[in-house]
Design a protein around this nucleic acid. Structure first.
Length: 274
DNA sequence: GTGCTTGTTGGCCA
DNA sequence: GTGGCCAACAAGCA
């Protein structure tokens, strides 16, 4: 599941169902771990009766703005998901936040609870939102900025560096593999060892993968696909990376899987050399 | 039972 | 002080 695009996908799902509508019921368990560091009881009071005004997605996070200076931030963690259910829906075991409107129930579900719900009251968006690093597709994400970051993390493997949200916001495990595969760079390459042309390639593919991932969910209007996985073309590494005996769509050679930087990583040895 | 898993954080160590 | 590595968080799945 796309990391960056996943946040946008789920944001849209809630937004289309409920923007402009009033929240009539709020169901949550304040003690649930997904509310760590947040006053969940205050969140419940603030949202009851409030209208959803707008929403945004950035990196792996979503922000929902409600009338009354109330902001709700959601991070999906490893297993979080936003769903829209009918009015009579009965919350299940891992449904941690359920917002009811006259037409729908907005559900945040997360079995592993690495995800997070944050609440903020104020006229402007909260710091935990505005402090997210500039998007990969923004003008601030320059090849020079990437080069400087690689120098600072010179001894770390590329794979680990791509997962650092302070420079590559929204890039997760599969996107990092996809980027390195397209750029023909081995995930174990030390960040400081790249030649200028390689840095340029890495920068370009970061942007291309983010753009393509977002494009798979754009222009679908209200008809969002049930799953994003099925939307990813076979020409990407993504549909092949978890298959045992999977083959590289470009070389036809065997794909390899191993832990790099502590994370399961897939690459194409014929294409990505140390 | 074992050993994985799309993310992030804090502690330890060089 | 900085950067790199790893365990921990919790639950489900093969």
């Amino acid at each position: 599941m796309p990391e960056l695009a996943e946040a946008e996908f789920y944001r849209k799902r809630w937004h289309q169902a409920a923007v402009g509508r009033r929240i009539t019921t709020v169901r949550l368990h304040p003690a649930a771990n997904v509310f760590r560091g947040t006053d969940a009881a205050a969140l419940r009071r603030a949202l009851a009766g409030a209208r959803l005004l707008s929403s945004a997605a950035q990196a792996k996070q979503m922000l929902f703005q409600f009338r009354g200076d109330a902001w709700v931030g959601i991070h999906l963690g490893m297993s979080g998901e936003l769903r829209v259910e009918p009015v009579g829906y009965v919350p299940q075991r891992h449904d941690h936040l359920v917002l009811g409107t006259a037409r729908h129930q907005l559900v945040f579900t997360d079995p592993r609870m690495f995800g997070r719900v944050q609440w903020h009251r104020g006229a402007t968006p909260p710091g935990w939102w505005t402090r997210i690093a500039p998007p990969v597709l923004s003008p601030a994400f320059t090849a020079e900025a990437v080069a400087a970051f690689l120098r600072r993390r010179a001894r770390a493997p590329l794979k680990a560096v791509l997962l650092l949200q302070e420079r590559f916001p929204g890039v997760g495990n599969w996107m990092a593999d996809e980027i390195l595969w397209r750029a023909a760079l081995h995930p174990r390459r030390r960040a400081g060892s790249l030649r200028p042309a390689e840095v340029q390639r890495l920068w370009r593919e970061c942007r291309q993968v983010c753009r393509s991932a977002l494009a798979t969910i754009a222009g679908r209007g209200a008809h969002l696909p049930p799953s994003l996985n099925a939307q990813i073309p076979r020409t990407w590494l993504f549909p092949h990376r978890w298959l045992d005996g999977g083959r590289c769509p470009r070389t036809g050679g065997r794909l390899v899987r191993a832990a790099v930087g502590g994370r399961t990583t897939c690459w194409s040895p014929l294409r990505q050399k140390l």
